[in-house]
Amino acid sequence: MKKLIDNVEDVVNDALEGFVWAFPEYLHRVPGTHVLVRKRPKADGKVGIVSGGGSGHEPAHGGYVGYGMLDAAVSGEIFTSPTPDQILEGMRAAHHGQGVLLVIKNYTGDVLNFEIAQDLASDEGIETARVIVNDDVAVEDSLYTTGRRGIAGTVFVHKIAGAIAESGASLPAVQNGAQMVIDNVRSMGFALAPCTVPQAGKPTFTLAETEMEMGIGIHGEPGTHRQDVKPAHELAEFLLEQIAQDLKLEGGSHVACLINGMGATPLIELAILAKNVGTWLTAKQIAHDVVWMGEYMTSLEMAGASLTLLRLNEELRKWLHAPCDTPALRQGVGYDY
């Protein structure tokens, strides 16, 4: 295993320290915790937003802490949900008198730990609400499974819920907005090469030189099936067909797109994927409004990508274009000079 680390045990702690050192104008670490909060807290009287999950998804989640997005991000060990006491610390820090919304990705561990934290926060008198992101169409959604996973579409939830909260909306209004994103966002991804969790020291799965894994999540777990590597346009088409079918997209729809690298995919390859997404959307007469391309929700050094489409209505479009200023996403911020 070759990794740019000091000690396997210290990976998460050291990375959090590095984030705070590199973005001092944005981030503050709650002492003795794995919680990153806004350096300049949100004004009192606004709803706080807390997200988080295992580490290894950088820039998620600490990279989205800042104006117009998250108030606090809670990091667990690599690919492991944070514990309830840590999430509670995040909720305390994010609470500015109007309650706290938890953004949870649909994994058993995350849901359990965030639910327990929510109970603890309620006991302290903090008003709480939660949404559960489940955008991954690779996974069958059925009553007999844990349901779909939450993957890169989560970043759209951060962005839009954050904008609504910043406007001074109530906790139910912020929750409804976040849920509206979840109802309209779908994603799917693939891996060309697996990743290695530092503590495990070996890859989470192995692929032959000509193989790829389709329908992967963001924790190095195997996907839905294995196949021979295909050209970018075939991959784009396959993923978009799955997503569009699930969203029931038709000609005339408006969408926002996220072309997300899994950690070790060069931008030139993401751009080729993006070009093919554009070609496909044009052919289907689906209009795109916002495109994000880059690393937004990674899986350590996995090679591969995911595509996310968010079906837009006027309201979602408005919040999507609202300003935000975080280490990983900055837009529409005005300056006085």
């Binding site: 944070p82 840590q86 730990n113």
Partner: peptide, 15 residues
């Protein structure tokens, strides 16, 4: 266990 294991197993054994 609740505050140190993490993941589903920590929440389940701990709680």
């Amino acid at each position: 266990l609740l505050s140190t294991v993490g993941g589903a197993s920590g929440a389940l054994w701990g709680s």
